[in-house]
Write a protein that binds this DNA or RNA. Structure first.
Lengths: 326, 326
DNA sequence: GAAAAATGTGGAAACGGTTTTACATGTTTC
DNA sequence: GAAACATGTAAAACCGTTTCCACATTTTTC
């Protein structure tokens, strides 16, 4: 493959001149420029970005560590992040952790070696100690010490869900979700705030304290038996708010399998704002997060990384998404 | 950030020796090795992968150009490709083209500059002329001249669908899908074979020739009105095979909106084998592609790229996936 | 016990660019 | 006519590695 020297030799100029043409910097005579451009085409020279990034000390690559790009919301977020960063000349490296802390750690190491320009972190694991704070880290929906973050307004999401259920006449409400409270080192995730917003609003309005159910979601393979048990232990429940649409879906199926109608007998609200493509059934009522707004926020932070500016945490609004289950 | 020279100086050895320790190559005395390893830890040195890839002439990065990682099947394929390549030390760069040829071309250029080790191409656009055949290209479900490919056994998929519909007593069958036949430069995509397999089998069994409907899917935003029209113009149809589960979903919805029961009145078979997470309704009967097997095939080809071995095209089996719509 | 082989080490070139420095022209300006 | 400035080039230094080669030391072999 031809390099810059080949171009220079063939055009009869110095490599600096070629470099100036490529980078459109400094003074180059018009004829010289044209001659060089012609040679570049002729021998189909392409600058080696690897060599370039060595001296430039950046490579325009951003890594996104997330549990699973197959999960609908994460997948959409990934899509918008890629689209948004593309506009600004960045490429996105995808790192599926499958929620496994070991894979996250390996990736974090790899990325350090690769000198990526930024790492977007989406995890529920307690990896604080493995985070090299000198790395350009950015987290979504999670606070780590010294790491700027972007998050949905999860608390408000919980409030919106509670409001709706109460409006619809619910009296006994329940939250179903796993927000990593069971870990040996409990961390207050952003996601926990969904539950808190929900709880606070219900308390404020004088309704009976909700029942808080946590169960291990594991690797996004939901366990219907688990939900079955929960539902049957609490037949008085008439309103359910779940941690995600995926869980809501399992809950609704299980309710209907047990002869409880949704939304007539029990109302169910999910979280994420699922734009399901293959849904032949009811549309899930949900609290929506906007992957597009989140992606824009992430992009803003990453641009600021580059400018070495102070990076502010950003909270992105959520919205109530009408559906047929609450 | 410390570099290899800093390590060499601090350890009182030459950089070549440090390199040997890092890469575990050549001869190094045990004590020398230990001393160097100690220094590496002390100054927390990490090798710069960018510089490394310059001399190694490879960077262990594979790019995946695909229309949209949000599309369920593509998303799953991406997930498995990432997982599979991760095992072999590769990182995956994701490039959503949104089906836009311009974005594909820009990405192809970018990737050439970045000297990625391989480019996985998943596209329906006619980009043959823009493909630099010197690049380590690999395509999925699409044949380009001189580019090795991996594809599902699409023809067999069509056959399986036809078989099932006939078994279920269908007499008038229809194919719905857009396989880029309308383009100015018609290309025979792998996907077209789904239709051909379907058609051939129906003909062979002496059933009336199926009606072949093509409509523009556009950017994966399906147009219900379009489907509405198709369905009402052909009320005699009792069996439908669609290009994907996503289209099948739209078709089923539209059929039911028009008072035709699925599968009682019309049977519908999709393609992809949709593992929908948020589906509260019927499970779509489908011809399944295995993203895992495909990912493994892709990985095999990529490994062979590296070994400079001849790369064979690979056809991956499809399977019938039982559902509730046919 | 000398030659041959194995082991151990460092300097320098190479990878393919960017940036800096030094210098050579040509054009104004006073 | 010399100083100041603009325009352009060549050569060298640098980025952080790997690799080749030369050389030194130790161990094995006959």
């Amino acid at each position: 493959m031809p390099n810059i020297k080949d171009v220079a030799k063939k055009a009869g100029v110095g490599i600096a001149t070629v470099s100036r043409v490529i980078n459109d910097s400094g003074y180059v005579k018009k004829e010289t420029r044209e001659k060089i451009e012609k040679v570049i085409k002729e021998i189909s020279y392409v600058p080696n970005e690897i060599a370039r990034s060595m001296t430039r000390q950046r490579n325009d690559i951003v890594a996104f560590i997330l549990p699973n790009s197959t999960h609908l919301f994460f997948g959409e977020l990934l899509y918008f992040v890629e689209e948004e960063l593309y506009k600004y000349g960045y490429k996105v490296m995808i790192c599926n952790s499958s929620e496994k802390i070991e894979k996250e750690i390996v990736y974090l190491d790899m990325l350090k070696n690769n000198r990526v320009d930024a790492v977007i972190l989406l995890t529920n694991n307690d990896i604080d100690q493995y985070l090299d704070k000198k790395l350009p880290l950015l987290s979504f929906d999670r606070r780590f010490d010294g790491v700027p973050f972007v998050a949905s307004d999860n608390y408000e999401g919980g409030v919106l869900a509670a409001k709706r259920l109460i409006e619809q006449g619910c009296k006994k409400m329940m939250f179903i979700g796993d927000d990593a409270q069971g870990d040996s080192t409990p961390v207050m995730t952003e996601v926990t705030k969904r539950r808190l917003g929900f709880l606070d609003y219900i308390k404020e309005k004088g309704y009976p304290e909700m029942i808080n159910i946590e169960y291990p979601l594991g690797d996004y393979i939901h366990i219907p038996e688990n939900i079955h048990k929960i539902i049957n232990e609490h037949p008085e429940i008439d309103g359910i708010f779940t941690i995600s649409d995926a869980v809501a879906c399992d809950v609704i199926k299980e309710l209907e399998n047990n002869g409880r109608r949704v939304p007539e007998d029990v109302k169910v609200i999910g979280f994420d704002g699922g734009r399901s493509f293959l849904n032949l059934g009811k549309k899930i009522t949900s609290i929506g997060q906007s992957p597009k707004l989140i992606a824009e926020a992430i992009r803003r932070s990453i641009i600021n990384f580059y400018k070495k500016e102070e990076i502010e945490n950003q909270i992105i609004p959520v919205y109530f998404q009408e559906g047929e289950t609450a």
